[in-house]
Simulated assay, not measured.
Amino acid sequence: MPISVLLIDDHHLIREGLRRAFEREDDCHIVGEGGTVADAVREASLLTPDVAIIDVRLPDGSGLDAVTAIRAQHPTMGLVVLTMYAGDEQLFAALEAGASAFVPKNAPAEDVILAARHAAASPRSFSAADLADAMRRRLEPRGPQLTPREKEVLQLLADGFSVSGISKQLFISESTTKTHISKVYDKLGAGNRAQALMSALTLGLLRQSRDG
């Protein structure tokens, strides 16, 4: 049986282009169209297509609201999100809304068709071209990345040591100590010790003071 597809986009030309692309495929056919969130929710319930392709920006709200509503009513329906703004925030918002796939609007029509096939076959999984990179970026540690030595220097600054005192504690020259301090300031966006320590406290980079 061909994959039945519902198209939801408020731009007629985009719907027409996608319709023509799907009509060239033997395994897909368009069963309905619409241009609003209300259309999406209503037509999904009336037509129960295998896949609904929904634009994020619609006149009466966000297409992601439609995705959430449809997913709640139709757990096995494939839901493909189209968007002009394909950043990480939008990608994860689509994932959290319950979408099956996420496709930028500037992608070729073939990508939308592939996403529809994926959504029909595996509606509760999630597919996006940039998913692996987006996950990597989300999992990367946030904030400045200090070296182990820079962390030691920062902690000694917090403990009240002078440049000379830090040098003696770490058995390094004062010149090297000053270089480490300068790098710590740069990474924390600080101009002096007080600013560096305030930033470090905010970022959770300091352990309890030795005097505490």
Rank of each mutant, 00 (worst) to 15 (best):
T179W: 01
S173N: 06
L64M: 03
H29Y: 12
A86Q: 06
K183R: 15
L64Q: 05
S199D: 00
L7W: 00
L157E: 07
V37L: 09
E150G: 14
R24F: 05
I113T: 03
E110A: 15
D50H: 11
S100V: 08
R124W: 02
G189N: 02
S167I: 10
S62F: 05
T176P: 00
D211Q: 07
A40T: 02
M1Y: 01
R42V: 09
T68N: 08
R193D: 09
A120Q: 03
K168C: 06
K187F: 14
F171G: 13
A115V: 01
L206Q: 02
E140P: 01
G98T: 06
L6N: 04
I113P: 09
E89T: 03
A115N: 00
D211F: 09
T76G: 13
V112Y: 07
G191C: 00
D130K: 13
T176V: 14
L79S: 05
G160M: 11
L13K: 01
A101V: 09
R137M: 04
E16F: 04
A99N: 06
G17I: 09
Q208S: 15
A158I: 04
L156H: 07
I3H: 01
L6Y: 10
A40V: 00
K105V: 04
R138M: 12
A107E: 02
A120T: 12
F126I: 10
L58P: 08
P59C: 04
R20Y: 06
V80F: 03
H11A: 10
D133R: 03
V103H: 01
L91Y: 03
G63Q: 01
P75G: 08
I181M: 12
Y85W: 11
A86V: 03
S62N: 08
L146G: 15
L91S: 02
P108F: 05
S209M: 06
G212N: 09
T76Q: 10
F22H: 00
A94H: 10
V56S: 01
S173Y: 07
Q73W: 11
I166T: 11
M77D: 01
V5L: 02
G143M: 10
G61S: 06
G17H: 11
T177K: 10
R137D: 09
R124F: 03
A86L: 00
D133V: 12
D27V: 12
F171Y: 09
D65P: 12
L131M: 05
D39R: 07
T202N: 03
T76W: 11
L139M: 15
A72K: 11
I166P: 09
A196Q: 03
E110N: 13
L157N: 08
G98A: 07
P2M: 01
H180K: 13
F92E: 06
L82I: 08
L82R: 05
S209E: 15
L205G: 06
S209V: 12
G212W: 05
P148N: 10
T176K: 13
T48K: 07
P148Q: 14
A86N: 05
A194Q: 12
A99D: 14
V41Q: 03
G34I: 06
S164I: 15
D39Y: 07
M84Q: 09
L205Q: 13
V67G: 10
T202A: 12
G63H: 01
D159V: 05
T177G: 06
R57V: 12
A107H: 01
I53F: 05
L79Q: 07
V67C: 12
A44F: 07
S182M: 04
R138A: 14
T83A: 08
L64D: 00
